[in-house]
Nucleic acid binder design. Structure first.
Lengths: 334, 334
DNA sequence: TTGAAAGCGCTAACAC
DNA sequence: GTGTTAGCGCTTTCAA
């Protein structure tokens, strides 16, 4: 292992004092051009890197962003958070931060983890995903004035915290409009049971588009848990009705996959759209709403760095527009 | 923000010296029972947590394990690494370590990241996934005597580093045997082009099982890139031949999904097995080989902690057996 | 067993 | 513009 190269090594090599090196690194504008160059050369030649631990002891900042990695759950939709996490890691690195991972079974466990982390690794900020009604995590963090951003709106109140989210309603609205343009009229919605922020939001988009087109939606709004098998059952029953919907806007790719399987099993054509543009959608050629996850992650990091640099107040939460990825399995109306 | 509680606060509260507190925390057996209890109480009451930064300055150990988060790629198989990462985070936490994330486009970029990370955050160890032929990362780390484990065998040589892996051949062997027992004889294999360690390993299992059953495999070994669409095309062509295979062991769920779609599109029954038991397999009822990822992650952490505690030499790499998850879509032979 | 002293590498204050 | 001093919180000597 190469011997340690500290700020003192660099100073000696460059023929300046330790402090000057520190200055060059942290407030370069305060050092004379030539000195600065000498120091940079020394840093380069020696392969010097600031020790985070030492820096943290002085500044109290760890340049660490902590976030939770979720258990994949259904797994089809889970991949969305994984892609977000990947993008977050990349964005954070670009801003000089690293992502520290933790797991937690529920909100309480997560809060306990905050306490532990804050005492030990002292992350500068948290990124929370999967916000939900009555989210205790955000209130806990807010009360302690800890910097954080959520990927997902606060669904309860016009909360006093920063967030980044994707406009789900706009996504399902696009999907519905796409089906309307293809000539469909009886377009159903398959979502999750009412009460979830995300799910209800996606339902709104469908309602909006249908209303705009002057279509009646009675008897077309359906819900079931986010599992393929259940969706298949529900849709199977649906297709037996008269009149049956000719198209279905789904709140997730899992539901959409179930719907598609039901329609195939019964040999009854059904146009289906999903949500999240997961690998499965790509694989089976399903039209789906795609979230701009890279953009979302980048915005989270940006919000956070501003917040940490004290330029906070000016910043505002962000609502991004998703896009519809059209694939050709969507059957024409019969 | 609660005021800082340091080791000194605890010492005062417990009525002992600072050093005693440190002893209780690091080498409890050296402190008298009663004193120890007092200190623990103080720690509890004050909610004290050791500062990692300070500890690291003294000990040089960060209690950080660094690992790469990959871009989801195909996404169907990508979920395997995500589940592994989740499990790794959990296992690491149980051993008092946290997982630090980074991204890298290729081996060289990854090595550059090692240098950066080692200079700044000083992770105690690395976990590398997706090992491949001519892996420059492992040699780089080995040369510098940096602690690491790979999830995936070193495919080139009987390398001098620790690894944990899952026996892919055993998995496909089980799958093949399962199909044989169901009465199939012309069982094909659909894998990746020769040259990938993982892919070739999985092919071996199929060969082994077929040989054991006295089945001829000529003309039954197929390969294509790991994408659903390509698999669908390949299998579509295959089913047109005479005689066509009645069953297909696939090296991944992506390939299996493609195969299934081809068989459905043509209305030609085909029994298919996949690999990795991804969410998609679960969703569409595909029989698939499941990797024990939690176990694999736990073994990685265990190997690493031993290594870091100096009990290294005794440790050995681990080859785990996967299990076959049988689902009922597997058609009977015709 | 417990306590005192030193120092890990860095940066914020202040002096030069 | 540059150098000196101090100390962040901890653990590792060494002495009591």
């Amino acid at each position: 292992m190469a011997k340690k190269v500290t700020i003192a090594t660099v100073a000696k090599y460059a023929g300046v004092s330790r402090q000057t090196v520190s200055n060059v690194l942290n407030t370069p504008e305060v050092v004379r051009e030539e000195t600065r160059r000498k120091v940079y050369e020394a840093v380069e030649a020696l392969g010097y890197r600031v020790s985070q631990a030492a820096r943290q002891m002085r500044t109290g900042r760890s340049r660490l962003i902590a976030t939770r990695i979720e258990s994949t759950g259904d797994g089809i939709n889970g991949s969305v958070l994984d892609r977000f996490l990947h993008a977050l890691t990349e964005s954070a690195a670009r801003s000089g931060y690293r992502v520290l991972l933790y797991t937690a079974a529920d909100d309480d466990a997560e809060i306990a983890t905050y306490e532990d982390l804050l005492g030990t690794y002292k992350p500068d900020a948290f990124v929370l995903a999967s916000t939900h009604h009555r989210d205790t995590r955000t209130t806990w963090l807010t009360e302690r004035r800890l910097p954080f951003v959520t990927f997902g709106r606060p669904w309860d109140a016009p909360d006093r915290h920063l967030w980044v989210d994707v406009d789900g309603a706009s996504g399902t609205e696009d999907a519905t409009r796409h089906l309307l343009e293809a000539g469909h009229e009886r377009i159903g919605f398959l979502g999750w049971p009412a009460g979830s922020g995300v799910g209800d939001d996606r339902r709104q988009g469908w309602l909006r588009a249908m209303a705009a087109a002057g279509q009646d939606t009675t008897g077309l709004d359906h819900a079931c848990p986010d599992r393929v098998a259940e969706a298949e059952a529900v849709v199977g029953e649906l297709l037996g009705r008269d009149p049956a919907p000719t198209a279905l806007v789904c709140a997730s790719d899992s539901l959409a996959l179930g719907a598609l399987q039901a329609s195939r099993a019964l040999g009854r054509p059904l146009a289906v759209t999903g949500f999240d543009d997961t690998p499965v959608a790509r694989a089976i050629g399903l039209t789906s709403v795609s979230q701009p996850l890279e953009e979302a992650a980048a915005r989270c990091v940006r919000l956070l760095t501003r917040l940490l640099d004290g330029e906070a107040e000016a910043e505002e939460s962000v609502l991004l527009r998703p896009s519809l990825v059209v694939r050709d399995t969507t059957y024409p109306p019969t």
